[in-house]
Amino acid sequence: MSPRTTSSGWASAIVRALEMGGVDCRSLFERLGMDYCALSDPEARFPQDGMTGLWHLAVEASGNPVIALNLAQVVRPSSFHVVGYALMSSRNLHEGISSLVRYQRIIGESADLSLHPTSDGYELTLAIHGDRLPSARESAEGSLAYILAFCRWLACRPLTPRLVSFAGPAPAHPAPYREVFQAPLKFNAGHYALLFDRTDLDAPLHSANEALAQLHERFAGEYLARFSDGQITHQVRQLLCRLLPQGEPKREVVAQAMLMSERTLQRRLQAEGTGFHQLLDGTRRELAGQYLMQPQLTLQEISYLLGFAAPGNFFRAFRRWFNTTPNEYRAGL
């Protein structure tokens, strides 16, 4: 299985935050077997386990358990690779964060982002996955701090989340968290998330530029395609998108289309940390969110496009994915 990686842009942001806290990152990179000079190469990528080790060594070297919060002070679009510029030129934060969710893998393969409407706003949830090493708590906390600071920078005005959630226990000294997030905090929440007011994410951005937004979206899509090229997971996902309108694809059909046996397909997917049914469910979930943004599509048509035998099966799956009904989700949009 190929190790998960982090882009040089995001690794550079982490290094700037750590060096602001007095950490000698050049020596830590050497200890971890990573090339410090490669931070200046926009195409370079660093192993996830190496970045996890960097967080642990930096906390130990600095004696500062909240050093990750320094990420809120090093905001620049290039940290998010081309995705940062797509976000910057979006019409509003909702559109920009949606791009961030779509192209997250460009920035770092270890993170999963999702954005969904709630009764009183939008919740952006974050999960950081480890590779061979468990993920570092600092990685998730620093990412939340950076995303919020980036949104505030783009909005050019105070932006106060309704709630900031942390999966871990409350720290002994919460003051630095209150200072950085300036919002209600919830620890032991079971997940990491930022809950925004709807009006904050729907407000127009001064930096909006439709032509640039389309250009950066195309660049991001092309980069992600190159980045994913050759990975079985990506190939299966693309094939599922084409096959779903014909009904629920069977694993044997997908394997035949990829000129391999079912056993080989299963083994190669497992090597990439996933499985056929997990990919099928995730692809349907992602497409469902996209289809519901198209008002001309009826729920029955969406059910058909997702390969469900009956609309009732679609409704049950949708409630499991989003904890709401398709009609309520669409109304929230």
Rank of each mutant, 00 (worst) to 15 (best):
T6D: 00
S8H: 03
V15L: 06
L18S: 08
G22A: 08
E30W: 13
R31D: 12
G33A: 12
D35V: 15
F46V: 12
D49F: 13
L57I: 10
V59E: 01
L69M: 03
N70S: 08
P77C: 07
H81A: 15
L87I: 15
L87M: 15
S90V: 10
V101C: 08
V101E: 00
I106R: 00
E109Y: 10
S114T: 11
G121D: 03
I128E: 00
D131Q: 09
D131I: 13
R132K: 11
L133Y: 10
A136C: 11
A140C: 05
L144M: 04
L144C: 06
A149Y: 00
R152D: 00
L159P: 02
T160H: 07
V164S: 02
S165K: 14
H173N: 12
P176C: 06
R178K: 10
E179M: 09
V180K: 00
L195F: 01
A203S: 08
L205D: 00
L205C: 07
H206T: 14
H206F: 15
S207T: 14
G221F: 06
G230Q: 08
G230C: 13
T233N: 03
Q235F: 13
R237E: 11
G247C: 05
R251V: 15
L269V: 08
H277S: 15
L279H: 03
T283Y: 07
G289E: 00
L292G: 03
L299F: 10
E301N: 04
G307T: 01
P311F: 09
R320W: 02
N323A: 09
T325Q: 02
R330F: 07
A331T: 10
